[in-house]
């Protein structure tokens, strides 16, 4: 592939368009990336794209940003990653900048307040729906540890104001500990691994589906 100005423009443009027209979170954008980079441009083959998606879901940070960094880096090294990051960040940056000035001008207008009050109830409904789906998926794994971690974390954060980064660190270390211990005892290995992969398959099917927010949370599993 020739790495001329047109190639770099195409890389930036792809990231920009994907970001500008993707409502509903990172997992939708990942599905659309697959369509554009694998099917249309044929820059990356299907299997490699799946690897990139897996990595972008394992890393912290917005999945859309992670995936675009990986695609850009894969295509053209650091300059490529730089271009795809810019392409992905520009649309929300511009849109929110414009909206925030309007917001500051109109925030006290009664009609705007009414609109926001209504939308906030809708937003609460959407997020509650997401939380119900996510929690159900954790419970469905039918293992003690994940459910216990979920219950304890919720109690600690909601009722005892425990620092959330502390909660994340403790559960991350617990995960590392169980993974390492499992790695050492071969007997526990099969048992321990069967369940998470079952969960993961279900999750990735969901993530590839077209329900953006549902895919958004469950694909993360």
């Amino acid at each position: 592939m020739k790495k001329d100005a047109r190639f770099y423009w195409n890389l930036f443009y792809s990231a920009f368009i994907l970001s500008a027209f993707t409502f509903g979170g990172g997992y939708v954008i990942v599905a659309l990336m697959q369509k554009r980079f694998v099917k249309r441009l044929k820059w990356i083959d299907e299997d490699e794209m799946l690897d990139l998606v897996a990595i972008s879901q394992s890393a912290p940070g917005p999945v859309a940003i992670n995936a675009s960094i990986l695609v850009g880096y894969r295509m053209a090294g650091i300059p490529g990653a730089f271009l795809t990051i810019l392409g992905t960040v520009f649309p929300p940056f511009i849109i929110i900048t414009v909206i925030s000035y309007f917001y500051m001008a109109f925030r006290d207008d009664p009609t705007t307040r009414a609109l926001f009050r209504g939308m906030q109830a809708g937003v609460a409904a959407v997020i509650t729906d997401v939380v119900i789906g996510m929690a159900a998926r954790i419970i469905k794994i039918r293992q003690v540890l994940p459910v216990a971690v979920m219950a304890l974390s919720f109690t600690a954060a909601s009722f005892f104001n425990v620092n959330i980064i502390l909660i994340l660190m403790v559960s991350g270390m617990l995960g590392a500990y169980t993974a390492l211990r499992r790695g050492k005892s071969p007997a526990a290995d099969t048992v321990g691994n069967a369940a998470p992969y079952a969960g993961e398959n279900a999750a990735s099917n969901d993530g590839a589906g077209k329900k953006p927010l549902r895919g958004g949370k469950e694909g993360s599993e």
């Binding site: 509650t128 997401v130 939380v131 403790v170 995960g175 169980t178 499992r182």
Partner: peptide, 26 residues
């Protein structure tokens, strides 16, 4: 597999924290 192991236990905690945020949003 280590990253997967970490994420497997991290995920329920993340869900709990989102639920906790959701409570205050609601």
């Amino acid at each position: 597999s280590l990253v997967h192991g970490i994420i497997k236990v991290l995920r329920p905690a993340v869900v709990a924290l989102i639920a906790s945020s959701d409570l205050s949003i609601l």
